[in-house]
Amino acid sequence: MRRVIALIAGGLFGAGLHLSGMTDTTRVLGFLDIFGDWDPTLMFVMGGAILPMALAWRLTIGRAPATGGSFPTRPDPRLDPALLAGGLLFGIGWGLVGLCPGPAIASLSYGQTGGIVFFVSMLAGMIAAPPLRARLDSAARRA
């Protein structure tokens, strides 16, 4: 049952990304072009995602998911070097291509080469990140 709920939730998320224009790289890049031909529509998409999520975090306090397990813990609000570096890399990728992980996966349904190349590159980065992080942490401890 848990997998069925996850499949339905993932399908709704992907459909929402398509409907909101988050898989349209020209719309995303237009949003990021604040000094040019700025397209503010994605600001409403982000607001429409942030507000319900803030409410959802509040509603999970003292509760458990209906399908078992537990809700994730609240993220640490500290700004550490790893978070800043990750945010910088995310922003660079988003600004260069106009896709982030969720829309990149949803855009695979288009079958376009650019989306596939981005997805494969994203997977390569995800595979390379843990050993690179371990190596950097090890070097930092020795210093």
Rank of each mutant, 00 (worst) to 15 (best):
residue 1 M to Y: 14
residue 2 R to S: 11
residue 2 R to F: 11
residue 3 R to C: 07
residue 5 I to R: 14
residue 5 I to N: 10
residue 7 L to Y: 04
residue 7 L to N: 03
residue 9 A to M: 09
residue 10 G to Y: 05
residue 10 G to V: 05
residue 11 G to K: 03
residue 11 G to T: 07
residue 12 L to Q: 06
residue 13 F to I: 14
residue 14 G to R: 02
residue 15 A to R: 04
residue 16 G to C: 02
residue 16 G to P: 04
residue 16 G to V: 00
residue 17 L to V: 04
residue 18 H to E: 14
residue 20 S to T: 12
residue 22 M to P: 09
residue 23 T to D: 11
residue 27 R to H: 02
residue 29 L to A: 00
residue 31 F to C: 08
residue 31 F to W: 14
residue 33 D to G: 03
residue 34 I to A: 10
residue 34 I to L: 09
residue 35 F to Y: 12
residue 36 G to N: 09
residue 38 W to R: 00
residue 39 D to G: 05
residue 39 D to C: 09
residue 39 D to W: 11
residue 41 T to W: 10
residue 43 M to P: 01
residue 44 F to D: 15
residue 47 G to I: 00
residue 49 A to T: 09
residue 50 I to D: 13
residue 50 I to M: 14
residue 51 L to M: 09
residue 51 L to H: 05
residue 51 L to N: 04
residue 52 P to M: 10
residue 52 P to F: 11
residue 56 A to L: 13
residue 57 W to M: 09
residue 60 T to W: 07
residue 63 R to Q: 14
residue 64 A to T: 12
residue 64 A to E: 14
residue 65 P to H: 02
residue 67 T to Q: 12
residue 67 T to K: 08
residue 67 T to S: 12
residue 69 G to E: 09
residue 70 S to H: 02
residue 71 F to S: 02
residue 73 T to D: 15
residue 74 R to Q: 04
residue 77 P to G: 00
residue 79 L to E: 12
residue 79 L to G: 06
residue 80 D to L: 05
residue 83 L to V: 14
residue 83 L to P: 03
residue 84 L to F: 11
residue 86 G to K: 07
residue 86 G to C: 03
residue 87 G to H: 01
residue 87 G to I: 04
residue 88 L to V: 03
residue 88 L to G: 13
residue 90 F to W: 11
residue 91 G to T: 13
residue 96 L to Q: 09
residue 97 V to I: 09
residue 98 G to E: 08
residue 99 L to V: 12
residue 99 L to T: 08
residue 100 C to Y: 13
residue 101 P to M: 01
residue 102 G to I: 02
residue 102 G to H: 02
residue 103 P to R: 00
residue 106 A to V: 13
residue 106 A to T: 15
residue 107 S to N: 10
residue 107 S to W: 11
residue 113 T to W: 12
residue 113 T to R: 14
residue 114 G to N: 13
residue 115 G to T: 01
residue 115 G to D: 06
residue 115 G to H: 08
residue 116 I to A: 11
residue 116 I to T: 15
residue 118 F to I: 01
residue 118 F to T: 00
residue 119 F to Y: 08
residue 119 F to G: 01
residue 120 V to H: 02
residue 120 V to P: 01
residue 121 S to E: 08
residue 122 M to L: 15
residue 124 A to I: 07
residue 126 M to W: 14
residue 128 A to D: 09
residue 129 A to F: 15
residue 130 P to S: 04
residue 130 P to V: 05
residue 136 L to D: 10
residue 137 D to E: 15
residue 137 D to V: 04
residue 137 D to L: 13
residue 138 S to I: 10
residue 139 A to H: 12
residue 139 A to K: 13
residue 139 A to T: 12
residue 140 A to M: 12
residue 142 R to A: 15
residue 142 R to G: 02
residue 142 R to V: 08
residue 143 A to Y: 07
residue 143 A to T: 05
